[in-house]
Design a protein around this nucleic acid. Structure first.
Lengths: 237, 237
DNA sequence: ACAAAAGTGTTTAGTATACACCCATGC
DNA sequence: GCATGGGTGTATACTAAACACTTTTGT
């Protein structure tokens, strides 16, 4: 065979998306470094890092996410590997890598996504010294090919959600209104949905349970809350 | 950060599926080695190998497939990375790896699939000294976690084909009969299809063109041939 | 003439889409 | 009382599923 022994580096990167009832947000790591002129800069990257020698990919993803952001106990789903040879060749990125670890030629990264409720409980677990939620539709240029990785994550999530609608409910609070749910679907599928048809749809889904509880103190008719019934969902497919 | 420098190895593996008009087949590399008692064995693995230091993943997949089987000019689609830490720990596999290259702790592999017409032209390009087509439903135990990788490839292909039906036609000859097409769908989706409904369906798809040509010399009513019109397909979605 | 596979229509149920007005609440 | 978002029903078009017999060809 005699293939040259490739000695590459492997990392994992996590695209953690959170919905706050209004918009989709992504969890980013703060990164600071020097550019080629020695100027200090601060920008953002996905939480990700090299894996250990003897560690499952999935375990590495959980570990790295926890270490870099404080977030733990979320379901991470592998969706794609990124191994273009120029993905780490931007000068700023090269400098940053050299500061962080030995000279690295190229890093193949295995990307994971996770969908979470962006509520106050979760807000607290995020270490804001080093990590930050940013609106998905207002992202600047991220490190490496991380903008691309996020775009691919969204595609993967759409595909996945088509086969397993339960996925989406990870983004919603336990009690959610029909319009929160609808807005979320509109964002994910980038498509307007008819309000009446949407109500009709959810009313005939056995796993979306209307509650007696309603919104409080809003300056308009109070919306009903619903909840997602995991058991009923599993039973219905 | 101070993450220990992981020094892992990266490979690509290719799941090339071919349809011969009757059944789905997968292209395998022959492998021979010694087991722990020094006994010689011969078994099969997916065509795959370590990547070069400075090579795109996608390029590596094409190169490796060509080198190990002779097959080139096929579309390879990345679908999943496999990095369980015990995926290379079977004793037979450990011995084989040590013979082939330096001691390797763990290999993360990026898996690709490809769908091809298994016709005589392709048969000729396969180097039968080192590679061989085997029926998908009659596979034995393959090296490493390659049975798992093939199963995951099928799942990925189903998902992908739902979004892009053109994919399936890579498996069919240029001229195909309705029942070849139907049998293929039945195999891929593991589900019987109603013959009449199937005919109705394809008759109303603008990109499946009925030809005047029919089967020759069959001991029953000769079936009509159809072809897939790529242009009409792209136009229709 | 018989074996073997090809080909053909109709009915029914369910799902997706389009569309406009009244309701409840806080200020 | 008005601004704001919540909530409701019907008609139509399309798609999916169930179902059995006749046709063509070689032996």
């Amino acid at each position: 065979m005699a293939a040259p022994l490739a000695n590459n580096h492997i990392s994992v990167d996590c695209v953690v998306l959170g919905f706050d009832g209004e918009s989709l947000n992504v969890l980013l790591s703060k990164r600071s470094g020097c550019d080629s002129n020695g100027k200090v800069f601060m920008d953002y990257k996905l939480p990700g890092s090299l894996i250990y020698q003897d560690e499952d990919l999935d375990d590495a993803a959980s570990r790295v996410l926890k270490e870099l952001t404080g977030v733990s106990d979320v379901t991470l789903t592998q969706f794609k590997a990124f191994g273009s040879k120029d993905r780490t060749s931007n000068l700023r990125d090269v400098h940053w890598l050299e500061k962080e670890q030995a000279k690295v030629k190229r890093i193949v990264t295995i990307a994971y996504f996770s969908l979470v409720k962006l509520d106050k409980t979760l807000e607290k677990t995020v270490n804001t010294e080093v990590a930050e939620w940013q609106r998905l539709n207002q992202l600047g240029r991220l490190a490496f090919d991380h903008n691309l990785i996020i775009a691919e994550a969204l595609k993967a999530i759409r595909r996945e959600a088509d086969n397993n609608r339960a996925l989406i409910f990870n983004l919603l609070p336990k009690k959610f209104t029909a319009s929160q749910f609808r807005m979320l679907m509109e964002i994910i599928y980038d498509k307007q949905l008819d309000v009446r048809n949407f109500h009709k749809k959810i009313s005939q889904l056995s796993y979306i349970i209307p509650l007696d509880e309603r919104q409080q103190g809003v300056a308009h008719r109070a919306a009903r809350y619903y909840r997602f019934d995991k058991k009923a969902y599993s039973g219905s497919r």
